[in-house]
Amino acid sequence: MRITCPLCGERDRREFYYKGAALVRPAEGADLDAWHEYVNLRENPAGPLDELWYHEMGCNSWLKVTRDTATHEILAVQLASEAGLGGEK
C-alpha cells in the first residue's frame, strides 16, 4: 500500500503509523455524549472513510486520508493541519 504525503510524495505504507478515524474534536464544554462519541464510537463503513495517518518515518505530518476500506483505494490525502479537526474553539 502506498500513500501520497502532500509534502514528501508517494511513500510506502511502512513509513506511516495508523491512528483510526479522523473525527472533529468536540468543543471545550461539550457534553459527555459528544466526548463518548468522539472517543469511543466508530462507523466502520465498507467504503470511504476518513482516517488519520502519521508520516512518522518521513516528515512527521499527520494526514487525513480518505480511503475506501473495501477496495483500499485512496481517494484523498490532506494535511491534518488543514482539515479542521480541532473543531469549534
Partner: peptide, 13 residues
Amino acid sequence: MAHMEFVSQALYP
C-alpha cells in the same frame, strides 16, 4: 512526540 504533533497539527494549528 506523535501525540504532541497531533495536538499541534490537527487540533491547534
